[in-house]
Simulated assay, not measured.
Amino acid sequence: MVPRLIATILLLAVGVCAHADFDAVRADRAVSGASAFPTAASPAKVGTYPGSVKSGAGYFYDEVLEYRVWLHPERGAPARSSGGDYFVAFAQYERALAFSQQSKGAEEPLVLVRQLKHVNEPQPGVFEVVSGERLTEWQVQWLAGSKRTPGAIEKFMAEHMK
């Protein structure tokens, strides 16, 4: 889990973190075929979540809400009327990945997750359980093994409090 903390710090350092005052410019709510990662819990809601959310951390997630591909006009993406960065939201990872690979100025997909209970690490090696809804953008690979299941947080805390 230490690599996740380091990755979170790197995300913050390079600016791939929470984006303030942004909304989806388009939503692709389609799901087709099998997916390597969970699809959106409510495809009809894809594109309706706030653009300004937390970034990274938490160790566990409850639901995948959408996949986001952020676009940057300064890197060649088409400019919008505001001139700033924007994102396209997707219900399925593979569709987001294909879009990011064919779109100039696009980042690799991030995933927006809902956390109802998660583990915070305010300092390296110091863990606390936090209850309450939190929306956060994650790197997609963090989904593997991070779905909160009964007893998962208690097991994590027991293993890390030694």
Rank of each mutant, 00 (worst) to 15 (best):
K45T: 02
I153N: 07
E128W: 00
P73G: 06
G76Q: 02
L11N: 14
L135P: 01
S100Q: 04
G56M: 09
P124A: 14
K104L: 09
S100A: 13
F99N: 01
S35M: 05
E133I: 09
A91N: 00
F127G: 01
K162N: 11
V140T: 12
Y49E: 04
A27Q: 03
S82M: 07
A79Q: 14
R134Y: 10
Q139D: 10
R95Q: 09
Q141D: 10
T39V: 15
G56R: 08
R75M: 11
Y67T: 05
K54M: 11
M1L: 13
F156Q: 11
S146L: 02
G15S: 06
R4A: 14
G125W: 07
R26E: 14
A77I: 05
Y93F: 15
A40L: 02
W70Q: 08
R95V: 04
E128T: 10
A98K: 07
E108R: 14
Q92H: 09
W142S: 07
T8L: 08
V25F: 10
E63Y: 08
L71R: 14
S82A: 14
F60N: 11
F22P: 01
P150E: 02
A34D: 15
V25L: 15
Y67K: 07
L5F: 12
V140E: 05
A79W: 07
R148N: 13
S146T: 12
A106N: 04
S32M: 06
Y61A: 04
K155A: 14
A91I: 05
F99S: 02
E154P: 09
K104W: 02
V88G: 03
Q141Y: 12
Y67A: 04
F87Y: 15
V25G: 01
R148G: 08
N120M: 06
Y61N: 05
G76P: 03
L116T: 08
G83N: 06
K104Y: 00
G132I: 06
A57M: 13
F60P: 12
G56F: 02
A30L: 09
L5R: 15
A77Q: 11
